[in-house]
Every structure is written in C-alpha cells, then in structure tokens.
Design a protein around this nucleic acid. Sequence first.
DNA 1: TGATTACGCTACCGGTAGTAGCGTAATCGG
DNA 2: CCGATTACGCTACTACCGGTAGCGTAATCA
Lengths: 184, 184
Amino acid sequence: MRASTSSAAGRPRSDLNATVFAATLRSVHELGYAGATMDRIAVAAGVAKTTLYRRWPSKGALIIDCLIDAFGRIPFEGVDRDEVLSSGIRWLADKIGEPGVGAALAGVFSDAVNDPALRAILASRLQAPYRLALQAELGEPPHRIRLLMDVVTGTLIHRMGMTGEPMADADVAALIEMVLRTFR
Amino acid sequence: MRASTSSAAGRPRSDLNATVFAATLRSVHELGYAGATMDRIAVAAGVAKTTLYRRWPSKGALIIDCLIDAFGRIPFEGVDRDEVLSSGIRWLADKIGEPGVGAALAGVFSDAVNDPALRAILASRLQAPYRLALQAELGEPPHRIRLLMDVVTGTLIHRMGMTGEPMADADVAALIEMVLRTFR
DNA sequence: TGATTACGCTACCGGTAGTAGCGTAATCGG
DNA sequence: CCGATTACGCTACTACCGGTAGCGTAATCA
C-alpha cells in the first residue's frame, strides 16, 4: 500500500509549490500586489498560467497559501506573558518586513474586504490558527484575542500601507509597550 | 468683479458633487468597493461616466474626495486629553460604521498600497489634516501621533476587513481603554 | 450673436482574472 | 510493453473594468 496522499494512477504533480511561492513573493516585491499578475507569476515560476489555476482557484487563494507558507508557526519564546507577547509581535513585524510579504498581506487583505469568499479563506486558513494558538498560550477569552490581533496586525498593515515601508524598530517597540500595558 | 472661484466664460459646472458623493457611498455600500464601478456610480448619480473623469482623475481620487466630504472635521469634545481622545476615537469608529464609508476607506486604502500616486493623495489630503489637528490638540511629537493614528485607524479597518462589519461598541471601548493607557 | 466651457453619448483601447480545449508527458497496474 | 489516467504547456478566448477620444448639444457671459 502506498502513502495515502499519493493517488495510484496518472502523472504525479511535479513538486513546484516552493518554486511558485518564491516566484509569487518575488513578483509582488518587484511589481507590487496589483502588478504581480497571474501571467507574470507564472512566467517567473517557469510554469504555465493554467497550471496555477489547476492548483489554486484564484489569485487570492494563491497569495494566501503563499503567506501561510511564508509565516509558518509562531515561535513562542519566553517564559512569561511579557516575553511571549513581545517576541510574537516582533516576529510578526519581521515577517511583514520580508520582501513581498507585507505587500502581499496588505493586497490580499484589501481584496478580501469586498470578497466574502476570499475573506472566509483568509479568516479560516490564515488567521484562525494563530488565534487558537494565542488563545491556548495566553488563556484570554476569544474577544480579547480578537482585539489583540486587530490591534497588532492592523497597526502593522496600516503603517505599511500608508508609507510603503515596514514599521521601524523603534515604533514596533512602542507598539509592544502599548500592547503590554493592556495584555500583560 | 465676480467671485474669484467662478470663471467668467462658458457653461458653469452644475452642482452635482453632493449627488455624486451620495451615489458613490450608496454604490459601495450595496456592491462593495470593487463592485462599485465608475459606470455604476455614474448611473446611480444620473451622470455620464465621462463627467466623472472630467472632475476626478481616477476612481481612487473620487473615493478620497468622497471620504473627505463624509468625514469632515474632527469634532474635538471634552476638556481633558482623555475626553478628547475617547470622543475622537468614537467619532472615527462611528464614521467608519456609516454605510459605505468603511468599505470605501478599506478599498481605497488597499488600492493605495500598490499605487504610490494614490497613496500620496491619501496621505496628504485625507490623513495629513487630521494628523496636524491632533498634533496641535494633543501637543505630542509627530511620531507619537503617527503611531496613534496607525493603531486606531489600523485596528478599526482591520476589524472591518476581517469581519465585514464595523467594530462593536464594547470593543471600541476596549480600544479606547488601551489607547488611553498609553496616550493619556 | 459669438466665444467658451460643461455635459451626455457612443465607441474605443489596454490590461487582467479566469476558462476551454488540445496535444503531450509521466506515472500506474496488468 | 500497453492502456488508462492524470498533470502539464500552449493557444485562444470571454467578460469585465479603468480610462480616453471625439462629437453634438446645452448653458453661460461679453
């Protein structure tokens, strides 16, 4: 018996998720979210556009999968709540500062504002895991976690969107200070 | 001598800014930011699409002017900093909760993320006046005001974008509480 | 009345997300 | 080795949107 994830018959999918994700972030970094068209991403990945649509139902879904891959899991570090919170916020700020990640997040977020289907994917696949992990780690009620995520993510994205640059370290420190006063 | 704003010759512009702004917010409210196309806004306003483009250079510019009109000036209320801050945050939350305003703001914000020209308009025409007013009212250094606006606006938009609904009063109160702990 | 400017209308361009269909390549079980 | 099956590349296509060009007409002023 073969591994259950591999179907028995037919040509297997070539292993190009990593290639596509890298090409996606690179395209977004160089051309912006709107400029990173599906055609260009396909060319950058050395893949046919139709192949992208065989694997992801829409551009938004591709970007979200790309972001899930880019973010990974939160590395909870530290012993007390202060350290966990501040390291988590710094981790998110750093990730958003990586080339393409912040712009991709802001772009797909804004697409999701008026696309309920995409919003559902974004909320369930990208945000929910972190919400649950934070809830388990901090032991706060759900609405507190929601507010925490709105404040941290919203602030970082807003800065990125208004300036085009990720938030500077000094301001991240001020944000941490502010959050700690409420959630410590 | 005539009023300096009225040029001497030619057919005068008909007074339809208010009509267009109302039609814009209505369209965004009913169809979302992406669904509110320039064609539809024109039809909703009873105006030709070319007339819109004679007055606004782009859809984003129209939305921004519409938002400037919708927001107006901050009504600073209260005697001490606590009252000024909390009433200001509540005012912004209420405005964002008005039909179409939140979606329009989120939509144009996301357009601006990857359109530097639009971002410049957004920053200078919509955000700067409030930044200066807050600076004068609170007497805080510029980077503190920037952080304050990122936190408040970012949080409200993020909630709106992730849920499709404006932030509930209880959470607005919690946001105010949090901001006051840092900026009081 | 003539010059000037704004408006409505139709038609158009360039570009983007997403789809259809075909030939071909890669893998399986027999 | 062979047929079935599935994935891939490619070309062509649709539908839609932001934005523009050009023309006839309406409104205003000198």
